[in-house]
Structures are given as structure tokens and as C-alpha cells.
């Protein structure tokens, strides 16, 4: 374990430039962002989704800039995908992605992480931050900041935060979450939780509800189950879920991350995730406590539930050649009250 932690390069907090809109919602650049970043090795391309085409560049923590020369693809809804090649000489570190279009500049901090992924690595899992939850002392925001401070002291590949980032999904709560999130030096991947799905505030803050990413030899599928807790006919995202799940299937491990596993989710999504190509592992939160259920009812995918971050809980998960190994829950300071 100690050896694993030591082999990780130190990641530096990315360029501090914050853009988005004044209310915290995404502007020109939808992804990558500080909740849906990309992790690449030098020389690997990455994809960005933008509301408009424009000039793109990476900005390092030290302020160095690197112009990008993307290939553009038109997407449904008037969006655009930029496939951005990078140089094999690109220095490791944390970068902001900057876009200039129609006289406007938008910068997504902590969006691109350049590193040399290792085959065996630790991941930090936390869930249920609940920024804005009342009658908590200390407040969830303070606990979250303390938790991230503790996480900053370890060396892990990235942090997965599986939903209920906020209490009521209000823009103000998302803003406060973002401010705390940017104190984390590691890449942070988020998913929506049932508390976050108010209007389209989550999507406006982080973009897609379903996405996948690759880290080293492994693939991760991040999704929100709220839209799947319905009959097959109304399940609007299962096509994307199937496409992304199959895309990561050839990789060593296929690891799912969601806010809430629910046996009531549409049968179609259960077939995709747990029957036809069962995920190797699923991590989630929602329950605010440890789980006695060890596998999904189809008896395929192992489960791990991490208790609530507003209680200071987080967990390290070791991903190795032999499997996925959840460690005991850690505490970043106890909370009291309702």
C-alpha cells in the first residue's frame, strides 16, 4: 500500500483562473471541467465539448500556455466536439482549458490532468456532501473542505464523488460546492444524486449525467440512476449507457460509479449494466452508511457503499491487477446534530 502511494507523481493545483458564468454555470466549455476532467498521458489526445467553436489552449499552473489544434465535429443540440491532439513533450501537471470565441474567453480550471497512469493505483471515493444541509455543526461545507484537505495529503489517482453534492440542487449550493472542490489537488469526478436534480442545475454546472473516462488500463462509467428508476420506454439515457459501457469493455476493469444503486431501475438499464456485460465493480453512496448487500441482485457486480461525506467519511479503493479492493472508511472529523 505504502509503495503504491509513493509512486504517484505530485499533482499541482491547476491554473486558478475561474470562468464559467457568474452564477457558476458552464459557459463556452462544457467538458472537460473540474467535475468532469480528463486525465491523459503526454501525447494522448482528449475530447472537449463546447457550446461554440473557438480557439482552444491549455494553461498550466505556472501560466504557460499551449495552443491546441483540434478537429471539430458538430453534435446534436448545436454543440461541438473538439478532438485535441497533444504533444508527447507536454509536461505533466494540471492544466486549465481556455476557449476564446466571439470575443469571449472561458476558462475551466482543473480540467486537464497530464500524468503517467500506473497499472495499480488508489482512488478516493466519497459521496453525499450535501452542501446546504441544515442543522449540521460543523456545516457540510466545512466538513467537505476538511475532508479534501486530508485527501490532499495522500497520493491517489483521482477522487470520485458520487452524488448529492448539494442538499436541494440550488445554484447557490453548487457555487459553494465548486469553491470547495477547487481546493482539491487531485482530479475530481462527480456524478449527480437525487438531491442535485433540481431543474437542470446539475447539468448546467457539470454537463453530462452519463459519461465515461479511462485511467491507465481501466474504464470508469459514471451515471445517475434517477432517470433509470422508470420503465424501459421512458429511459432516455440507456442508449448512451450501452454505448459507453461497451466502449470500456475491452479494458482491464470496468468500474461503475453512481449515486444510488436501485433494484427498481429500468430492466433495460439493468440488462446493460449487470447482465449482458456486467460491470466489474460498482461504487455508490446515497445510504449514508455501510451496506450489507455485497452484490447487485443479479449476483454479478460487487458493490461498495461509502457513508456520507457530510459525516466526514471517505474511502480509499485500491485498483490492482488482482481486483478492486475497498479499504476501511476513513473519517475527516466527526459531525454532530441532525
Amino acid at each position: 500500500m505504502r509503495r503504491l502511494l509513493w509512486i504517484w507523481p505530485v499533482l499541482v493545483l491547476g491554473a486558478a483562473a475561474h470562468a464559467r458564468h457568474a452564477d457558476g454555470t458552464l459557459d463556452l466549455i462544457i467538458t472537460p471541467n473540474n467535475g468532469v476532467p480528463v486525465i491523459i498521458a503526454p501525447g494522448e489526445p482528449f475530447e472537449a465539448t463546447l457550446a461554440r467553436r473557438g480557439a482552444l489552449r491549455l494553461v498550466s499552473a505556472e501560466g504557460r500556455t499551449l495552443d491546441l489544434d483540434p478537429d471539430w465535429t458538430a453534435l446534436p443540440g448545436g454543440m461541438h466536439r473538439a478532438t485535441c491532439p497533444t504533444s508527447g513533450k507536454l509536461a505533466t501537471g494540471t492544466y486549465a482549458l481556455e476557449a476564446v470565441a466571439e470575443g469571449r474567453t472561458d476558462t475551466n480550471a482543473r480540467a486537464v490532468f497530464v500524468t503517467h497512469p500506473m497499472p495499480d493505483y488508489p482512488v478516493v471515493h466519497l459521496s453525499d456532501v450535501h452542501i446546504g444541509r441544515p442543522n449540521r455543526d460543523p456545516a457540510p461545507e466545512a466538513v467537505f473542505r476538511r475532508l479534501l484537505e486530508q485527501i490532499n495529503g495522500i497520493r491517489a489517482a483521482f477522487v470520485l464523488i458520487t452524488g448529492d453534492l448539494t442538499q436541494d440542487g440550488k445554484p447557490e449550493e453548487f457555487r459553494r460546492f465548486l469553491e470547495a472542490l477547487d481546493t482539491c489537488v487531485l482530479p475530481t469526478f462527480v456524478s449527480a444524486g437525487n438531491h442535485d436534480r433540481t431543474a437542470l442545475n446539475y447539468e448546467k454546472t457539470f454537463g453530462p449525467l452519463v459519461y465515461s473516462f479511462r485511467y491507465g488500463p481501466d474504464g470508469y462509467l459514471v451515471f445517475d440512476t434517477k432517470d433509470f428508476v422508470i420503465a424501459d420506454a421512458l429511459d432516455t439515457q440507456v442508449g448512451e449507457l450501452q454505448r459507453l459501457r461497451r466502449a470500456i469493455k475491452p479494458l482491464r476493469w470496468s468500474i461503475g460509479a453512481t449515486h444510488r444503486y436501485d433494484p427498481a431501475m429500468s430492466m433495460r438499464s439493468q440488462l446493460v449494466l449487470f447482465v449482458d456485460d456486467p460491470l466489474d465493480f460498482l461504487m455508490f453512496g446515497h445510504w449514508h452508511s455501510e451496506s450489507e448487500e455485497k452484490r447487485v441482485p443479479w449476483r454479478t457486480t460487487p458493490l461498495v457503499v461509502t457513508p456520507a461525506a457530510f459525516d466526514g467519511a471517505w474511502r480509499l479503493i485500491l485498483v490492482t491487477q488482482t481486483g478492486i479492493h475497498p479499504q476501511d472508511v476513513q473519517q475527516a472529523g466527526a459531525a454532530t446534530g441532525g
Binding site: D262, P263, A264, M267, R299
Partner: peptide, 8 residues
Amino acid sequence: KEADNIRP
């Protein structure tokens, strides 16, 4: 009887 009825 229950919404989550896929339980072995």
C-alpha cells in the same frame, strides 16, 4: 408489491 422486486 414493491418497486424493487428483482431480489433473489
